[in-house]
Each structure stands twice: as C-alpha cells, then as structure tokens.
Nucleic acid binder design. Structure first.
Lengths: 201, 201
DNA sequence: CCTACCGATCGGTAGG
DNA sequence: CCTACCGATCGGTAGG
C-alpha cells in the first residue's frame, strides 16, 4: 500500500493552478486541492513543503515559459513595434488559464511572506517586466515609439492586457483574432481616429 | 461609561479601507481592524452586520462618488475625446488610497458570497463600466474613436490605468501631471510615433 | 429597560 | 502518501 505516484506532483500543480485562479491565495484551502484530486492533505505536503511553496512553484514554472517566449521574440530581426505586437499576440492568444496565471502572480504576491515575496519580485522583474521595458526603450531610441517614461510605457502595455488576464469574466474565454488585433491597435495607435486627430490642438 | 460614538462608523470605514487595500479581503481579520482603532471587535459588529457588509459599504460609498464624477463629466459640452481625458485625469489624480479602491472592487469581489457578488456586479456595471462604455460608443458614432468592439475600448481604457490602482508599487504614490499626461496619450494616440506610422504597412 | 459597548468565548477551520 | 490529529486563529456572538 501507499504506492508513490510520481505523476501526482504534476497533477497537483495543474489542479492547484485552476483552483488558485478561481479562489485566490487565501480563498483556497489545501483541503480543497486534496479533495479535488481525491488524495489526502498530507499527500500534498509530501510534494510541497507548504502552501507558499506550491503557489510559488506554479508562478515560477509559468515565468520560465514566459521568459523563453520573450527571449525568442527579442531575438527576432524585426522592428520593435513588431516585437511588441508579437509579444501581445503571444500572451493574448494563450488559453484563459495560462493568461490568468499572470493575474495571479501580480495580485496574490502580497499574501506571501516577506522574504519569498522579495525574491520572487526580483525574478519577476528580471525575467518579465525588465525585458518588456528593454524592448520599449530600444523602440524609443530608434524613434519608433514616443519618448515617454519607460516605466509608463511598460505598465500601460501590461495594463491594457490586464482585463483579459481575469478568470471568467464575460468574453474572457479564448480571444478571437479580431479582438486581439483591436487590443494591440489601441496600444500601438490609440483609440482616436487619424482623421479626428487633425481637427484639434 | 459606554458612551456611544457616532463617528466610529466613519472611522471604521476609513481604517478598514486602508487595511483591506493592504491585505486583501481574506488577508485581513476583523480583529486587525478592531486593534487598529483601539476598539473591541463587537464594536465593529454593532455598526456592520458582518465582514461582507463592511467590505461592501466601502465599495458602495466609493462607487457612488465615482458615479457622480462620471455623470458630471458626461454632461460636459465637449468632444468625447475630452470626456475620456477628463475621466482618466480624474481617476489618476486621486490619492493612491482612492485609486486602490477600484483595484479592491474588481479583485476581491470573488471572495463575496454569491448573491452579494451578483448584486454588486450589477451596480458596478450600471454606475461605472456601463457609463464609460456609453462615452466610448458615442465617440465612435461621432467618428472620434476607431470603430472597435465597445467592450474592448472600455476594458483597454480601464486596463491602461490598472497598474496605477495598485497599493504601494514603486512610483504609485501621487502621480505627476507628466505621468498622467503620458498615460492618457497612450490610450488616445498610442505609443507609436506619427512619423513611424507612415513607414510601414 | 434603552443605548452603545466590553471581556470572554462560541463553533469551525486554517495550515501543518 | 494514509488516518488521525495539533496549536492558532478565523468570523461571529453569548451574557451583562
């Protein structure tokens, strides 16, 4: 009896991801994860030291994927504007649960203990935020983008996609190509029509 | 002894707002609120039926202020583009704790009980989201804004400000006029330079 | 016998 | 990797 199940770790990560997305960090009990998997609570603690470590494993795993995608996009021999487009398309075309992990990472980090939060924050900055900012800064230097504060350029870029990182809002399933195109257009070109622009200021 | 304190209700609301912003709904215990105010926990329950009602009172109070501001902006005899500008300026120029309530309202609503969440969601839609969408739709009809899905126009507008709704990120104190101007510019005109636009597609 | 509260503790549940 | 539990703390309420 008590046969170890190596695949259980992966199943825990997968199920816990969905559940954390639905309920948030404090809104989800370890017991709920155990019940959803039909395993005991101690089975969870066999694979993960505590709730924090399980949560962090989810975020770290996703962050590593994201870093690879960004590095690939940064290496493309195209204009910065195209890199931003590719990045936004990559993120928005992901399945809802994947997008929701970004939401999770940025929202529930507050609930973690101080040292864990700080170390994750640094990795998050290095593997994700910093690289986006680098692309935007390069675009400004090349005259492709307006010369604004790099931090503002970065946070408005991420912010514009934020509503689509939520789990289960109306129309937050898989996004249509047209919707993705429109979101990208707002960031790159703004919502004002070009004809309207000439009539003012 | 046991003198009633009518002002206590307002003090609870004020203190609980800051604490909910810092810790989230489940991250904050009623006891913490009581301790911060140097009153007993039952004193809290005298003024509010339960934690949910207290939380809801905070959100509702803010939502009513927001509705007034939006109605005032909608009534201005100016172009829709100027209304959007005024709305964004109004929101972004608020003190950090006020902005953070929007964050609270959209993030922690999940933690509420089903009936409460549904009824609040309707009010939120009616007093806030729906009115923003109306301004944007009117702008599209007048040819000021690009003809995109109204929901996309609305969520990208709110999304672009989202990073500035967080409590205590670096540089999320009072925003400078220049920063506010840049954020508004990204939404209205996009990040791409006009000169760069002509060189592609 | 009301109000506006307090000290103490309730039944349940959190992480471990 | 299960059953059986723990110290503590949660939201909420008793009597006075």
């Amino acid at each position: 009896m008590s046969t170890p199940e190596p695949a259980l770790r992966a199943r825990i990560l997968s199920t816990a991801t969905s559940l954390f997305i639905q309920h948030g960090y404090h809104g989800l009990a370890m017991r709920q994860i155990a019940e959803a998997l039909h395993v005991s609570k101690p089975a969870l603690y066999y694979h993960f030291k505590d709730k924090e470590e399980l949560f962090l494993a989810i975020l770290t795993m996703y962050l590593d994927e994201m870093e690879k995608a960004i590095d690939r996009i940064m290496a493309e021999p195209v204009a910065c504007r195209e890199k931003v487009r590719d990045f936004m398309e990559y993120v928005l075309a992901q399945p809802p649960d994947q997008r929701a992990i970004i939401h999770l990472a940025s929202q529930e980090v507050r609930q973690l203990s101080d040292p864990v939060r700080k170390s994750f924050g640094q990795i998050y900055q290095k593997k994700f935020i910093g690289k986006i900012e680098d692309i935007l800064k390069a675009g400004m230097q090349r005259g492709e983008f307006k010369p604004i504060e790099p931090a503002v350029a970065t946070w408005t870029l991420l912010g514009i996609m934020y509503p689509y990182f939520y789990p289960a809002r109306a129309g937050n399933g898989n996004l249509s190509e047209e919707t993705i195109r429109q979101i990208i257009t707002v960031y790159l070109d703004g919502i004002i029509t070009s004809s309207s622009k000439n009539t003012v200021e």
